[in-house]
Simulated scan of single mutants.
Amino acid sequence: MDQLTYGDIKAATERIAGHIRPVTLAPVDPLDPVGPVESVDPGAIRTADRGAEAPEVWLALEYMQHTGSFKARGAQNFIQAHREAGALPEAGVTIASGGNAGLACAWAAQQQGIPATVFLPATAPAVKVARLRSYGADVRLVGTEYAEALAACEDFAATTGALTSHAYDHPLIAAGAGTLLEEIHARLPGLDTVVVAVGGGGLFAGVATAARHHGIRTVAVEPENCRALNAAIEAGRPVDVTVDSVAADSLGARRTSAMALHAAQQDGVQSVLVPDSEIVRARQTLWDQRRVAVEHGAATALAALTAAGSAYRPAPGEKVAVVLCGANTDPGDLVP
C-alpha cells in the first residue's frame, strides 16, 4: 500500500481512543531561546526586531507517551485492528527491534493480553532487554547484527504463524502515528504548520496525511547524513542512503517507505535537512531551558527552527507545532 488516507487516520483515532496518553502541548515564549530565531543567543533575541508579530510556537510533548515515544500509537492500532478483524493468531505478535518500535509492540501486546516475541542482536544493551521483558515480551537474542535478528524473526513468524509487526512501513502503524496530528489540530485551532522529524517515515506519513486534510503544512526534518526521505524525493522513488548521524539510533532508516514518499509528494510538504551540530545544540537547549531530555531524533525537529541558516523559518504570526517524538535516551551526555 503506497497511499495512506485520512479515513485510515480517523479509524485509528477511534480505535485507540482511551488506550494512549493524549499529547501534552507547551507554548514557547517569543523570548525563549528554544523559539524560532536565527541565533539561540539570548542577547540576539532581546535586540531582534519586534515590529512584526512573532510566530506562535508550541512543543508537542509526545515523548511523554507510553513507552517514551509516539510508537505506542501505531503499535496499539496495529494490534487492535487485527483483533477486530479476527486476525490475531494464538502465537501473538513478533518484531525485530530493540528500539522504540520493539518497546511499543511489547507494550501494546501486553495491553491487549497477547504474546509478544521480540528479536534482538545478542549485543543489545541489557537495559533494553530488561525493559522489553518488563512489558512481558519473550526476548530472543540472535547473532550480532540486526539483519540476523530480523531473519530469525521472519523464521519464527513462518514457523509459528505469529503476526509480524514493523517499525514504520505498514499502513496501520503509520495511521496510528497520524492520530497525533488529530489531537494537535483539535487543541490548536488555526494551526498552520507541524514540524516533525523523519526516519523511516511512519510518523511523517501519518502526520502529513492528516495535516493535508486540515490544510496544515508539514515540515519534514532529517539529519544531513540520514536523509532517506529527502533522497527519495530527489530520485522520485525510495532509494538506499548512507546512515551516519548522531540521531541514527532513531532516524537511521536506510530507505524510506513508499507511503512516506507519496505523502511527501503532495502539496504542503517541505523537506529540510539539518547538521548534527545543530541537532546536538537543540537537544542541549531543551535541557538548559526546560530540563527536557529527549532523543537526538526528537531534537532534530526543533533544530529546523533553531539552526542558523535553516531552510525553514516561521513567518510572522505563523502558528507552529514542533513534535518532540521520543525520549528513550541516555541523558548522561547533556551538559549540567
Rank of each mutant, 00 (worst) to 15 (best):
Y6K: 07
D8F: 13
K10I: 15
A11S: 14
A17L: 09
I20M: 14
T24F: 13
P27G: 05
D32Q: 04
D32C: 14
G35R: 07
E38F: 12
S39T: 15
P42V: 14
P42W: 03
R50D: 07
E53T: 15
A60Q: 01
L61E: 09
E62F: 06
M64Y: 15
S69H: 08
K71R: 13
R73E: 08
N77E: 11
Q80C: 12
E84M: 14
I95G: 12
S97Y: 10
G98D: 12
G99M: 11
G99W: 08
N100Y: 09
A101K: 11
V118R: 04
F119H: 07
A122M: 01
P125N: 12
A130W: 00
R133H: 02
A137T: 08
G143P: 04
T144K: 12
A147C: 01
A151I: 01
A151H: 06
C153Y: 00
E154P: 00
T159M: 07
T160I: 04
S165Q: 09
S165V: 08
Y168H: 10
Y168Q: 11
I173F: 09
A174E: 05
G176Y: 00
G176V: 06
G178S: 08
G178I: 05
E182W: 01
I184N: 05
H185F: 04
R187M: 12
R187T: 13
G199Y: 03
G199R: 01
G200Y: 02
A208M: 07
T209D: 07
A211E: 01
H213E: 13
I216L: 01
V219G: 11
N225S: 14
C226R: 00
L229K: 08
A231I: 05
A235P: 04
G236K: 04
P238I: 12
V239Y: 08
V239M: 10
D244E: 14
D249P: 02
A260I: 09
L261S: 08
H262R: 15
A263W: 09
A264P: 10
T285L: 15
W287H: 14
E295W: 01
A298V: 04
A298T: 05
A299T: 03
A299Q: 01
T300W: 01
A301S: 06
A304K: 01
T306H: 02
G309M: 05
P316H: 10
P316G: 12
L324E: 00
P331I: 05
D333P: 02
L334H: 09
